[in-house]
Amino acid sequence: MSRTLVIGALLSAVLIGLALLSLIWTPHDHTSLNIPNKLQPPGAAHLLGTDQLGRDILSMTMVGARTSLGVALLALAIGLSVGVPLGLAAAMHKGSWLDEAIMRGNDIVFAFPLLVMAILITAVFGPSATNAIIAFGIFNIPVFARVTRGGALPLWEREFILAARVAGKTRAHISVEHILPNVLNLLIVQGTIQFALGIQVEAALSFVGLGVQPPTPSLGRMLADAQTLVTLAPHLAIVPGLAIIGIVMGLNLLGDGLRDALDPRLQRART
């Protein structure tokens, strides 16, 4: 196993584990206000300090990371559940009007910068976590359609697919039974990367008020709250920021490591 894979897996496991731990335990109640105890620097009572309302930052970060991970995961699910069937269908009828329409549609979605698309959707339907998920989910669709189509096209030329066709299986049947398992590696790697990107997108959208809404904490929302207080209490911004960097780095390293591990033909040094 490569070092990249080990570091990435460990970093992601620890941080995602901490976020999930918040489902059953946090050092303090993340909603309990304690105004006299506000803006405490990191110390024994509050390991990472307190915010402007005296809430425990470590507990907030754990719960916030859970929200951020949830947003990224749901957007990933939208991208996979729509993008993968589209990609399979496009590859199945390569060069047909369907393929052409899917790929051109993808081009158009790509032309919308992610942020602009999110702004447009939230401007029209109002800012909420759901709309942030939909915006990033839509962005994920062409990403997965492209990866699936790209991986599936060369497979259709292979002997084992020909054999399946000779045996009388329909194209749709072959797509699900033979093509999909063979592009799964690609999807796992891309999924890890899009998952990491989702954390960053949630943070950016919530930071400008277009994503997760109060009182739900998320890493992006914590940074938005910290913006005006950063000179008084830098730890308000530093802690959630480092959490984002840690999770994103962990997932990116994991994706890189998985790509090398799953595809031995790739030279590791090149990436």
Partner: peptide, 22 residues
Amino acid sequence: TQLGVALPNFWFAMMLVLVFAI
């Protein structure tokens, strides 16, 4: 570069303000 790719630019911006402006 792994660190750089993971860096949210608006967070980095806040840190830059903290150090170089304040």
